[in-house]
């Protein structure tokens, strides 16, 4: 069991191209245990691809991903989930024909400590309460609003008892009140010892939550440091102002 200060996840020389398009180029950075790491950059800089590589949605062309000192490249996505790595999605991916509760139960039942539906249901309800979805536990996930579906995804991810939580623009599209609630929730989760990597465009959240930030552009890491330092880095500002620059 890793302790605070250890490196939980280490990305080394990661490379991924889709056809002629290089999405991630020789990328390396570490994620320390117990901290919240921000991953930012213009659209198309490869951030989501990094998450997808970690959760083994596809395999990298080169490089290693060390999770607790074990290279997980080559593992299947369901195996990664069982290693207690959970995530949410930019485009919400709930199961529409199952209830809110059942969606969360899935996270619990098939994660690292598999259990039966009856047991999972209890935990699911507790988690739903935590994210504010308790009144809608019996509704079909397809009937939830977009924001509620995002909350559902978070509850589902938490149900898997993750050590590492990957959030892909989870705080996007929220009004100020919702944003505050969301930020508080993420902070709470971080305080429970769960290591978090969050891809965000909402800089307020980055400043409020992240201990460290990694900046990507065109598949490469261009800066790393505290939120304040990277957000005032001229290179970073240039990358954002230069508009979306999906590497050709």
């Amino acid at each position: 069991m890793s302790g605070p200060g250890d490196i939980l996840l280490s990305i080394r020389g990661l490379q991924k191209a889709f056809g002629g398009l290089v999405a991630v180029r020789d990328l390396s950075f570490d994620i320390p245990q117990g901290k919240i790491l921000g991953l930012i950059g213009p659209n198309g800089s490869g951030k989501t691809t990094v998450l997808n590589l970690v959760t083994a949605e596809f395999a990298p062309d080169r490089g290693t991903i060390l999770f607790k000192d074990r290279d997980i490249v080559g593992a299947k996505s369901f195996e990664v989930c069982r290693m207690r790595i959970a995530r949410t999605f930019q485009l919400v991916r709930v199961l529409p024909h199952m209830t809110t509760r059942e969606n969360v139960m899935l996270g619990r039942m098939f994660g690292s400590a598999p259990t039966v539906p009856a047991h999972a249901a209890k935990e699911a309800d507790a988690l739903l309460d935590r994210v504010g979805l308790k009144p809608r536990a019996g509704m079909f996930a397809s009937q939830l609003t977009y924001i509620d579906q995002k909350r559902l995804e978070l509850a589902r991810a938490l149900a898997a008892h993750p050590e590492l939580l990957l959030l892909d623009e989870w705080l996007a599209g929220l009004n100020p009140t919702e944003l505050k609630i969301g930020i508080d929730l993420v902070r709470q989760i971080g305080r429970e010892g769960i290591t978090i990597v969050m891809i965000e465009h909402v800089m307020e959240a980055i400043r409020a939550l992240c201990h460290r930030v990694v900046v990507m552009n065109a598949g490469e890491r261009i800066a790393e440091g505290t939120p304040d330092s990277v957000l005032s880095d001229p290179q970073v500002i240039q990358a954002y102002l230069g508009g979306s620059d999906a590497a050709a």
Binding site: T55, E57, F78, P96, M98, F110, G111, A160
Partner: peptide, 16 residues
Amino acid sequence: RAMTIDPVAASLVGID
């Protein structure tokens, strides 16, 4: 049931 609805999402919650 999860696999019937969305096999990719299913594998992402740890279903083999």
